[in-house]
């Protein structure tokens, strides 16, 4: 599941969710502005892996997340390689991957590699954050930025119910299976209709739960004085957060300067030129 928080006591876990959101922003800005494999490795990749290591999360867990996407990524790489020469003037060295049809250049390889790294980095970032931050922290953050409090609470409660609902749907399915229920068709319309015995009790039960929760939270004093309700976990930025924020901001500036805005040195030609000068 995508929201499986991994509890921990590391410095990263203890950061304020807002700092963590800045962390995501930093990785995103860096990956967007940098367009060269070496720079991507030096900045965003190092940032992601470094964070994972400090947080005690095995890099293999992150790699595992990317694994199912490998076929798509390979396809993506090939498409990039294919299109590159038609977009840019092919500077040598070049060679034919499929004679007369598929020409590949060193620049092209670097460009495709950079694209690939960007995607992987973005996927890993999101994954890493959901592992390190309870989803409720994000909701709290949202409430800090004027997201309605009652809606935030509703979201928290809804998420708390996920395990209950999963169990319920499972037992509904079993109840029908023992009455001989089985999908016996491949026709999509018939198939959808065949799911009625599962879907109807599930919907009814979640509607009923909705009403039950409304009663339940009232009985626990929810309507007492909503405007002055205490939110126990008030978000507070502490020294760790300030230091992290300064560090991340610096990275963003560096990224922007060497990437898109200023020097524009972090383009894919950087590595290919470097390789060329080594070869010659």
């Amino acid at each position: 599941m995508a929201i499986d928080y991994m509890p921990g006591e590391t410095i990263i876990h203890k950061l304020d969710p807002r700092t963590k959101i800045l962390w995501i922003t930093t990785v995103v800005v860096l990956t967007i502005s940098l367009f060269d494999p070496i720079f991507l490795l030096l900045l965003p990749a190092a940032l992601i892996i470094g964070t994972a290591v400090i947080a005690g999360i095995k890099v293999s867990k992150l790699v595992g997340m990317v694994k199912p996407l490998v076929p798509i990524l390979i396809g993506f790489m090939i498409v990039n390689l294919w299109y590159y020469p038609s977009m840019h003037q092919a500077t040598p060295p070049t060679f034919w991957l499929v004679p007369k049809h598929f020409q590949v250049s060193l620049d092209g390889i670097m460009y495709s590699l950079a694209c690939l790294m960007k995607y992987v980095a973005l996927i890993m970032t999101i994954r890493l954050m959901t592992l390190l931050t309870p989803i409720y922290d994000f909701i709290l953050t949202a409430m800090k930025f004027k997201f309605p409090r009652s809606a935030g609470l509703a979201l928290c409660i809804g998420l708390g119910y996920v395990p209950v609902l999963i169990n319920e749907v499972r037992s509904i399915k079993e109840s029908q299976e023992v009455r001989g229920w089985k999908i016996r068709t491949n026709n999509p319309i018939k198939k959808a209709r065949a799911y009625a015995p599962i879907v109807i009790p599930s919907i009814r039960s979640s509607l009923r739960r909705g009403e039950q929760i409304a009663v339940a939270i009232e009985a626990r004093g929810y309507g007492y004085d909503i405007a002055h309700r205490t939110f126990r976990r008030e978000l507070k930025l502490c020294r760790k957060d300030l230091m992290a924020i300064m560090f991340l901001s610096a990275l963003i500036i560096v990224g922007l300067v060497i990437g898109q805005w200023g020097l524009r040195i972090a383009m894919w030609t950087f590595t290919s030129n470097l390789l060329r000068s080594i070869i010659h």
Binding site: P134, Y136, C156, I157, L159, G160, Y161, V164, R209, Q212, I213, V215, A216, I217, A219, R220, G221, Y222, G223, Y224, D225, H228, R229, T230, F231, R232, E234
Partner: peptide, 29 residues
């Protein structure tokens, strides 16, 4: 305490569950 046990528990953690009532009453953390 409701008869249906799932109505008594709706918070993400045991701690949140116990704090829910006093939070509603606006007590200091």
């Amino acid at each position: 305490l409701f008869q249906d046990p799932s109505m008594n528990l709706f918070c993400p953690t045991v701690e949140d569950e116990m704090a829910f009532g006093p939070e509603n009453f606006g007590l200091p953390p």
